[in-house]
Amino acid sequence: MVEAATGGTYPDALQKYVLDPLGLENTSLPSEVALPEPFIHGYDLTGTDPMEDVTEGLAPGWAWASGGVVSTPADLNTFVRGYVSGELYSAEVRAEQQKLFIPGGESGPPGPGLNSASLSLFRYQTECGTVYGHTGNTVGYTQFIAASPDGTRSVTVSINLQRTDHSEDQAAFVFDALQRAELAGVCMALQG
């Protein structure tokens, strides 16, 4: 869709419309197996000890536009602030995103609070207030990013295990702890 809309390649559009305007110097779309350094190692605990380092078992380039972007927590905060505030697109697009949220819509795994989804935007209504952002995971990693409605406050929570709301046993305990950490991060961000 990006290539059809821009007439260029997805990597070029990502650079021109997102990375350059926000100054995201530590964010990239690798096309190789190797991750750009430095990077956080991801792990799998599904087997027995020792845990398996799966960092380079899945090339980010294989996920490409579906999650292949590699970034740092600082760049993630800059991105979510710019995205939620509307810095990357017009006021008309931002208004369309805010029109209709579908209850229960999530980016997977669910974020904290009541989740709902709109046009490429996810809303998390929590006891501390409402934030907008995204969650995601892949082998070895689970992420949550969100910003206040005006984009002035943000939170990034990352763990180097893949955990979801479908996790069982100890993994479910870790996912519950992750959601508590996400909520604590939202509360701290919104309370300043």
Score class of each variant (00 low, 15 high):
Ala5Trp: 07
Asn160Val: 08
Ser154Tyr: 09
Ile159Val: 15
Thr138Lys: 02
Ala171Val: 06
Val186Asp: 13
Gln170Thr: 15
Ile40Thr: 12
Gly67Ala: 00
Trp64Ile: 03
Ile159His: 02
Tyr17Leu: 09
Arg123Tyr: 09
Val131Thr: 10
Gly151Lys: 11
Thr164Gly: 07
Asp44Gln: 11
Arg94Leu: 14
Gly151Cys: 08
Pro112Arg: 03
Gly108Pro: 03
Val174Phe: 04
Phe173Met: 13
Val54Lys: 01
Asn160Cys: 14
Ala189Tyr: 02
Met1Ile: 05
Thr135His: 03
Ser107Met: 11
Gly133Thr: 10
Ser116Lys: 02
Ser116His: 03
Asp75Leu: 02
Glu127Ala: 09
Gln125His: 14
Tyr89Glu: 02
Val69Met: 03
Pro112His: 05
Met1Gly: 05
Thr126Trp: 05
Ser158Met: 14
Val33His: 13
Gly136Tyr: 04
Glu182Asp: 15
Gly23His: 03
Gly140Ala: 12
Leu121Phe: 03
Phe79Glu: 10
Thr152Tyr: 04
Gly67His: 00
Gly61Lys: 07
Asp150Arg: 08
Gln162Trp: 08
Ala91Ile: 01
Thr9Tyr: 03
Ile40Ala: 14
Asp53Ile: 10
Phe144Trp: 15
Leu58Asn: 04
Tyr83Gln: 11
Gly8Met: 09
Pro103Asp: 06
Ala171Thr: 09
Glu87Asn: 13
Leu19His: 00
Tyr43Arg: 07
Val2Glu: 08
Asp176Met: 07
Ser28His: 02
Leu45Gln: 13
Thr46Arg: 10
Asn115Cys: 08
Leu19Asp: 02
Glu56Met: 05
Thr135Ala: 05
Ser154Pro: 05
Leu121Cys: 00
Cys128Ala: 12
Leu190Pro: 04
Asp176Arg: 14
Gly192Phe: 01
Thr164Phe: 05
Ser154Arg: 01
Asp150Asn: 14
Phe175Ser: 05
Asp165Pro: 06
